[in-house]
């Protein structure tokens, strides 16, 4: 179907639907007592993580194991530890020499998965690169939305928070727009790049003016402190203007959802009580992540072309 998954740019609406449909079938399997499938027996998946992310790594690891693939975890924390050891390219070639079939890569440098895909024959799955993209997160989010609203086209989705530094926002906007949703980005102007309009999203600096119309309010994690520059005066001021609290939730449509990629800063972008409402589907997002990642591993490692049945 596709060799690598680097960006949501490469997926059409049909592609996304196929990933989601496959995930739905696979989730059936994971609901039964014997959860393991023999599908990727003998295949090896490497989780190459240059940024710590236990949640994403575990999700990929479990997905690969459910499909009977062998899993290698390779973690390197930061630029410095890598600089002292072997280079990114050396690591890539080492994995290649070991016969790895897929590399799931998380990296702080935007574009690193694309670079990696030019060096290896293995499939490369982007598990988050810099500020650039996090396509599996977007797919699991779209999957979670589709569970509640059969069709995404015409849905109003607000993505609120630090869009500028967010790979989750980039991937989600692309995927949601591809699926026909109306996306509005909400937050302080320092966190919302105006160029995001070219992605097909609207921009608003006023959460209250959009909250009544949204079917989904997707909250991004707001970094409490940025080392390099200040982007808003205080967490309190952020929460007052752009945080989702029960006062704002009360204005939402009855069936509108609250989503968050986690981990949440309770009291900043989301108040503690809101995070526990039934309309908050944060835990669904986590469990759907497993099915989406199984689906991708199956579709990507399941071979090169459509074949015949005998």
């Amino acid at each position: 179907m596709f060799k690598h998954l680097l960006s949501m740019d490469q997926l059409s609406a049909d592609d996304i639907t196929r990933v989601l449909d496959t995930a739905e079938s696979l989730r059936q399997v994971t609901d039964r007592p014997i959860k393991k499938l023999p599908t990727l027996r003998g295949r090896t998946v490497c989780n190459l993580f240059y940024e710590a992310s236990t949640r994403t790594r575990i999700s990929f690891e479990l997905a690969a194991k459910r499909l009977s693939a062998d899993v290698i975890n390779f973690s390197a924390d930061s630029k410095s530890s890598v600089a002292k050891g072997e280079s990114f390219k050396d690591t890539a070639w080492t994995l290649e020499a070991m016969g790895v079939d897929a590399i799931v890569v998380r990296h702080g440098s935007s574009g690193a998965p694309l670079q990696l895909s030019r060096w290896v024959k293995a499939s490369v799955l982007n598990a988050g690169d810099g500020w650039h993209e996090h396509p599996t997160q977007a797919l699991l989010d779209i999957f979670s939305i589709r569970e509640h609203f059969k069709d995404l086209s015409g849905l109003n989705v607000a993505i609120a928070g630090d869009v500028l530094h967010s790979r989750v926002a980039r991937s989600n906007v692309k995927g949601l727009v591809t699926m026909g949703a109306n996306v509005v980005l909400v937050g302080p102007p320092t966190l919302i790049p105006i160029q995001a309009r070219s992605w097909g999203a609207e921009i608003s600096y006023d959460l209250d003016s959009v909250i009544e119309d949204v079917d989904v309010c997707y909250l991004l994690r707001v970094q409490k402190e940025r080392a390099t520059e200040q982007l808003f005066p205080s967490n309190r001021e952020y929460a007052a203007n752009w945080g989702l609290d029960s006062r704002r939730v009360a204005k939402m449509k009855p069936d509108a959802l609250v989503m968050h990629p986690g981990p949440m800063n309770r009291g900043v972008e989301i108040s503690a009580d809101v995070s526990e409402l039934p309309r908050s589907i944060v835990l669904d997002q986590v469990s759907n992540g497993l099915a989406i990642r199984m689906s991708l591993l199956y579709l990507m490692l399941g071979g090169a072309e459509e074949g015949d049945v005998s």
């Binding site: 449909d21 990727l40 399941g302 071979g303 072309e305 049945v309």
Partner: peptide, 21 residues
């Protein structure tokens, strides 16, 4: 029963669209 995930030729034949079991 959809047996796609149990086939011994996954990777030789390409991924099939999964149907409900």
């Amino acid at each position: 029963l959809d047996v796609s995930l149990y086939r011994d030729d996954v990777g030789l034949r390409g991924p099939r669209n999964l149907e409900a079991t």
